[in-house]
Each structure stands twice: as structure tokens, then as C-alpha cells.
Design a protein around this nucleic acid. Structure first.
Lengths: 191, 191
DNA sequence: ATCTGAAGCGGAGGGCTCTCCGTTTCCTTC
DNA sequence: GAAGGAAACGGAGAGCCCTCCGCTTCAGAT
């Protein structure tokens, strides 16, 4: 959103990233409220530093969330470079499910953020569908993916896989395989 | 809602009422967050007592709010007993504006409550329109008020008077007088 | 009147949040 | 490679929230 992702000084940037990494783990693991000084200590910085980077608890949670979305969407280009489009898509969806599993742990923390900034979700969903669209288009161009898939629909389907992942971990993988089969060029029309 | 308005023991009820009265003043006056122990101290009770009656800050704010609505609406019968219906209506509307002025001071505090219990407003609005309806019907029966007034419309109009009261105190009074004139039997139709 | 146990009270204490400012670290400039 | 100033750091400390439990008070029973 703003340039706050990259503070000027190197130590500041390092600290910021360390805090985000630690906060992601802390917020994902426990459903109770994690004390902010615990996060600061785990990141090896003073509490004052945490508060300078993230003035409120919500700011921290939101930053963690945005950061994860960004990493996920930013991985698209690398995946497309290293893998055939269909495998890239498959891998990306897998990462999504993994990611979203951690988001589940954060859901309590996210609650409060949504109230503070209700635009957050629609915004990140835009980023997600953009990423999906890029993957799909690439697959379509290569003749590997059928051309009539709506990124939004696919995102919804992936949310289904996420729900399945909650019940048993390997269900999600199988669901994604199923999804991939349906997406491939030559599969019967979806309507 | 529940019987929590009237605890069994006399001391408990006394404390509860004292807390509500003090909290109303405290929350109305300052827009910053009032420490709960300050309220407890001002009410002459321990902080533990406050927390027993109102387990959270929101519970306290909500109780204050409900209590005021209740007092306002509960005054209707007395007003109708002591005054002619049109004057009762006028007086009641005046009290509404006074009351709502204090509510304005509480608005910051109410913010958080609305999130926790979004049914609160529609519920109290129902109480308000009921009260208004009673006053109107009484006036209509006495031939003092025109029969085609919708309580809901009137409530909205009163909210207008409230806004006016914000800018200058006596504006509200004049607006209410105007409103009363319009409501009287024999005034031209509103459409 | 007295007794009794249940209801209610108070406030110390522990944990968390957030601010504030003296100290440290970085980057730029020369 | 040294100096200077800005940026960032750390953590003590003050304030607030809320829990917990020993003590007090009330109200019905005798």
C-alpha cells in the first residue's frame, strides 16, 4: 500500500521482517491472545521497536496478513518460470491451502482487523484473483488449461479445499488434484 | 431483557444503580476513555463490584444506554397522567433531546457496543416508537393531534432536532415547537 | 433475637499495553 | 576513515484491565 514495507535503514528493515516472521508463527499457533512483548522478545527486539513498526496490534496483524498474501502472489512469476503452467498452477494452489491453514489460526486476530479496515479483504481478494488469472492465462496459452475458467470461481473452489483441509490434511491434496483434472484442456465443459 | 436489572439483595441493587448513575455522567462528559476504576471509586464501590455487575466495559455502556431509554420511555405514563396529551408529547420530546445530548457524549463508548451486539439499536428504537405511539394515540383520542402521523417519521424528525441542538441549544426547542404545531389537529396535511 | 449460609463486597496483585527518552547504530559527506 | 546528524533501538515505568479469594452483609428460618 505505502512504502512502509521498506524502511530506509537496513537494521529497521531486518527488524521489521523478523517481527513479521515471528508474529506469523505466534499468531498462527495459539488461538489465545499472544502478548506483544512475547513477540518482541522472540524476535530479539525491544517492545519499543515493535510499537514503532506496528503502532497497534491490528496494524501488526494486518501487516502479517498482507505480507503472506504478497508472498503467495509474488511467487507466481517464479513458479511460471520454473514449471510448466499446469504444474505451476497446481503448486500455487497447494501453497494457498497451506497458507490458508495458518490464516485459520490467525482468524481470531483477524476479526478485530476487519472491523478496523473492512476494505482489507476485498483488496487482498483482488490480488489473489489477479495471481490466479495470470496462472490460468499462461496455462490456456499453452493449451493445457481450458479457456472458460473464471478465476473467481476457482478461488471459491479452493476455499472448499481449504475447508476440507481442516478435517483431514490429505483431503485437501486430493481435492486439488480433482480440481486440476477439471481444469485441464479437454475436460468436459463445466456447465 | 433479563432480570439483571433487579438483583436479589438490596445492597447489590443500590450499588448497581449508583454505578449506572456515575457511569452515565462519566461517559457523557469526557470523550476519552474513562478508567473503570475511576467509575468504581466515584460510585464508592470496589472495582470487583463493578466487574461483578458489568463483566466488561461494553456491558456497562450497554446497561447505561438501556437504562436511559427505559427511563425515558417509562416516563410516558406519568406525563400522560399529569399533563394534557399534547403538552405531554412536547415535554417528552424535550426530554428526548436532552437525553440524546448525553448520548452524544457516549457515542465513542457506544461504538464498541454496537459491534458486540448489533441488535441493540433496533431493539431500543422499537421501545422508542412504542412510547411515541402511546403519546400520539392519546393526543389523537383527545382530538389534539392529527391522526395521520407515523411514529417512525416523528422519531426521525426528532433526530433532526437533536442535530440542531448540537449547533445551538435553543434551536432544538424552537424546532420542537415547530414540530408540535405541525402535529396539532387542524394543521394542513403533511403530504 | 439469633443464627446461618448464600450473596455480595473490596482491593491487592499480576499481566498486558503503550509511551517516553537516553543510548546506539547506521548512512552520508568530506 | 572520521565526523556528524538522523534514524532507530531498548526497556523501564505508569496506567489500565481483570481475576481471585478472604471478609462482610443481607435475608430468611427458627
Amino acid at each position: 500500500m505505502n512504502g512502509s514495507d521498506s524502511p530506509r535503514r537496513a537494521d529497521a528493515r531486518r527488524n521489521r521482517e523478523k517481527l513479521l516472521a515471528v508474529a506469523l508463527r505466534a499468531l498462527s499457533q495459539s488461538d489465545e491472545d499472544v502478548p506483544l512483548d512475547a513477540i518482541a522478545k522472540a524476535a530479539g527486539v525491544g517492545i519499543g521497536t515493535l510499537y514503532r513498526h506496528f503502532p497497534t496490534r491490528e496494524a501488526l496483524v494486518e501487516a502479517v496478513y498482507r505480507n503472506e498474501v504478497e508472498r503467495l502472489c509474488g511467487a507466481v512469476d517464479n513458479l511460471l518460470r520454473d514449471l510448466p503452467p499446469d504444474q505451476a498452477l497446481r503448486e500455487w494452489m497447494k501453497r494457498f491451502v497451506d497458507y490458508v491453514a495458518t490464516k485459520r489460526g490467525m482468524s481470531a486476530a483477524l476479526q478485530s482487523v476487519v472491523q478496523a479496515d473492512s476494505g482489507l479483504f476485498s483488496e487482498t481478494r483482488g490480488r489473489m484473483t489477479d495471481a490466479l488469472k495470470k496462472l490460468l492465462d499462461s496455462g490456456i496459452g499453452a493449451g493445457l488449461i481450458r479457456p472458460d475458467v473464471d478465476p473467481d470461481d476457482l478461488l471459491r473452489a479452493m476455499r472448499g479445499a481449504w475447508l476440507a483441509a481442516d478435517e483431514q490434511a490429505d483431503h485437501a491434496g486430493r481435492l486439488l488434484d480433482l480440481l486440476m483434472d477439471g481444469l485441464r484442456y479437454g475436460a468436459p465443459g463445466k456447465a
